[in-house]
Amino acid sequence: MKRIGRLKVKKIRQNVYHYVLLIFFFLIFISPIVLMILSSFKEDEIQIIKDMSSIQAFLPNGPMGFENYVNVFQRMNFFKFFTNSVIITVSTIVVGICFNSMFAYALAKLEFKAKHILLPAMIALIIVPGETLSIPLLLLVNKMGLIDTYAVQIIPFVAEPFFIFLFYQFFKELPKEIMEAAIIDGSSYFGIYRRIILPLSKPVFASVIIFNALGRWGDIMWPVLVTRGEDVRPLPLAMQALFTINRNNWGDIFAFATMATLPILLLFLLFQKQFIRSIASTGVKG
């Protein structure tokens, strides 16, 4: 009896240490986010700077309200930048998952002669960093007259060796028998992809969509190179422009940042189970 009691005390003490560590890291990860959101409601710009020397930075202090948000909407076309980012990200993902998964299906499940060259070539391309290609690519799209368009921010990204590889790995594992049965039933090879492979492959689609969305939504290098005016400018670039021009207008900057961040953060919170599961699944293999 006494022994069990001692074990219990030990267990409780361990749990307390565990929670202390968890809370320590919790504060580190949450504070900057709290700072961004709270500061966006602080109407006095000087207040924000003054609060930075103390814990007040992470607490409501001084006049709070929506003035910064009103400013952002009045002084610049936030909605335009937001729509641009949505258009670019969604189009890239939608077209991208079709192109990448179809190619991966051909490589993983169909017999054709060129496969033995295409597969290793595609895997080799995974290593090529997009950054190496960006300057010659700029020259190329410039020649094509694509500068300052949505297309130039979408088309080059709808085929991505890494995503093709993720699809390929997943499709490869699906049993061959389901295909043979479908062929006997008179299904076409494309029909098998659409009606059998796709419904079975939701996890890998989720992974690719998430990776692609994070990458596209946050990219700044390519938009810097290929956009000139504000018409097709995406959020990160608009954000950087605001930050460079109004360096001390922290209220507005944080209102902008909060609006750029919250949609993605909310999407993540809604789908976090699937989100985390699919990210986890890419790492375990191998």
Partner: peptide, 18 residues
């Protein structure tokens, strides 16, 4: 777990500015 992961979904431009 959710809180520790959440910075990953924040764009690097925003992170840099904060």
């Amino acid at each position: 777990r959710t809180v520790f992961f959440s910075p990953v979904v924040i764009t690097m431009v925003v992170v840099s500015i904060i």
